[in-house]
Structures are given as structure tokens and as C-alpha cells.
Simulated assay, not measured.
Amino acid sequence: MRTYATAQQTGTDPVQCDATAVHTAPSGARAYVLLDGIGRSQGIREWTRTAARQVARAASRRGDAEAGLRHVYNRCAAERAVHGSGPKAAAVVVVTAPGKPTTIAWCGDSRAYSIRHGVAHQLTADHNLRRVYPPCTVFPEGGNRNRITSCLGSTATDQDVMNVYGHPAIEATTCHADTHRLVLASDGAYEPHTDAGRDLASELVGLPGEAARAFTASAVHRAAATTRALDPNRAYADNATVLVADIRP
């Protein structure tokens, strides 16, 4: 039985520019990837889809999320240095490998969660201005969470980003290789739920396909309802994409 599934909703945007990819290497290492394209055009849509597949292949073949993401990040940066700017995307990658800890790497604000025993644990830390300037008494909202501070397609090095924002261009971590539900989500998928104070674990129940479809559909509904409540003439919902995988060591 297939143990993972993805689901997408375009929301009110004209084009779906999120993308997911899954690739399994001969070693048994499997990479799960989610990219959130920056902008809304057919060109960005196609680039993001291609880049997601490239990251998934690179990460699974190396058996490591950070090594795979860095390989594609550096290649894109080299191309942009020669040919100029191009499409960009927030990226999150998770690699599971037999007998090894699960590795996670990211740049941007797409997230990875692990759900264990009915509790959702966020595995990533957003690369955005909200992280750089967290909420405080003077500025209760903190920095603009929609301004990301790192992304795939940038030419900035780890040190470049560290000098300006206090974190590297790519971050990585690991988690225990035990049984859990892995969730990768674009900001358009998780923000409506977290803004509403919803428990993400309770929003992601059932088989992977059922959970993914319900999660994205309710995200778009909540986002549109929230903006409509502020302005009856405006209902906005971002692209919402999620990948749900049940991981068993």
C-alpha cells in the first residue's frame, strides 16, 4: 500500500506554483520534497516542478537532505551568476534511509512537521523576517512573515545570509528514525490553520491521501473566510500544498 500522498489547491491565485516530488534511490534512501514557487506565472510553475524533481533525485542519491539541497542550490546559484536572475522557491527536503536518522534541510518558509502520538512537532525554523524580528511589545506582529530571507534560486552564500539575517542560506537537522507521520507544507497550507489556532495533528488524520486533501481544502476555505471577514469585497487564498507520508523504520 502506498504510504504517502500529496494534495494541492490553487486558491484564488491564477497559477499553481507549488510542487512536490518523491524519489527513491537504489540504496533505499527516499527523498520527499516540497517547493513553493515565488510569484505566479507559467514559467515559475514549470521551473518549480523541474527543480523539485532535481532536488529529490539529488537528495535520495546522496542519502542526505542537506547534501541534495545544497547540490541544486549551488548549481542554480552558479547559473544565475552567469545568466542573471531567474525563478525562485522556498524549499524543504526530508530524506529517510534504512538504519539512519531522518535528515531535513530547508531554505525559505515551507515547513516540515513530524506527528507522533497525536502531537505535531515542527522540524524547521522559517527563513523570513518574522524570525529575524520576532513579535515584541513595540511591534506585536514582528517582521513581515511573507518576506523570506533565503530561497532556492538565490546566489547568496551561507555567510551572505548569515551576515544580514543571522541564519545560513540552508539549514539542516535530523530526527529519530521511528514510526511517525511526516508532513511537508507550503505557507499557504499551514498558515490558515496556525493562524486559527488549530491543532495540526487533528487536521491531519486518516490515510495520507484523505489527510492531504482535507488539509489543503480547509486551508483555502479558512484563508478566504478570514480575508472576507476583513473586507467583504476581497477573498484571498494562497496556493496550498501538502505532502503526507507515514514513515516506518
Rank of each mutant, 00 (worst) to 15 (best):
H83T: 12
G84C: 06
G84D: 12
S85E: 15
S85V: 07
G86E: 14
G86V: 12
P87L: 13
P87I: 13
K88L: 12
K88F: 04
K88N: 12
K88G: 13
K88I: 12
K88Q: 15
A89T: 02
A89R: 04
V93R: 13
V93E: 08
V94N: 08
V94W: 01
T96A: 11
T96P: 02
T96L: 02
A97F: 06
A97K: 07
P98W: 09
P98N: 05
G99C: 11
K100A: 15
P101C: 05
T102E: 10
I104L: 14
I104W: 13
I104V: 15
A105C: 05
A105R: 10
W106G: 10
W106T: 02
W106N: 03
W106C: 07
C107Q: 07
C107H: 03
G108C: 02
G108M: 05
D109Y: 07
D109I: 03
D109P: 11
D109C: 11
S110L: 08
S110Q: 05
S110I: 10
R111P: 00
R111H: 05
Y113T: 12
S114E: 12
S114W: 02
S114T: 07
S114A: 15
I115M: 02
I115F: 01
R116H: 09
H117K: 10
H117W: 08
H117P: 00
H117M: 11
H117G: 04
G118R: 10
G118M: 09
G118L: 00
V119E: 06
V119I: 11
A120T: 06
A120W: 10
A120M: 03
A120N: 07
Q122L: 15
Q122P: 02
Q122T: 14
Q122N: 07
Q122V: 14
T124K: 08
T124L: 03
T124A: 01
A125F: 08
A125C: 05
D126C: 06
N128Y: 03
N128A: 10
L129D: 00
L129H: 06
L129I: 02
L129E: 15
R130E: 14
R130D: 09
R131Y: 12
R131T: 15
V132H: 13
V132S: 04
P134C: 00
P134F: 03
C136W: 08
T137N: 01
T137C: 02
V138M: 10
V138P: 00
F139R: 14
F139Y: 12
F139C: 08
P140T: 14
P140M: 15
E141P: 00
G142Q: 14
G142V: 11
N144L: 07
N144W: 11
R145A: 15
R145L: 15
R145G: 08
N146E: 09
N146H: 14
R147Y: 09
R147N: 02
R147W: 07
R147I: 11
R147L: 10
I148P: 00
I148M: 01
I148H: 00
T149I: 05
T149G: 02
T149K: 04
S150V: 11
S150Q: 13
S150A: 15
C151N: 02
C151T: 03
L152N: 00
L152D: 02
G153P: 05
G153K: 02
G153Y: 01
G153R: 00
G153N: 01
S154K: 03
T155C: 09
T155W: 05
T155L: 07
T155I: 14
T155D: 03
A156C: 09
A156E: 13
A156L: 08
T157P: 04
T157N: 01
D158E: 06
D158P: 05
Q159P: 00
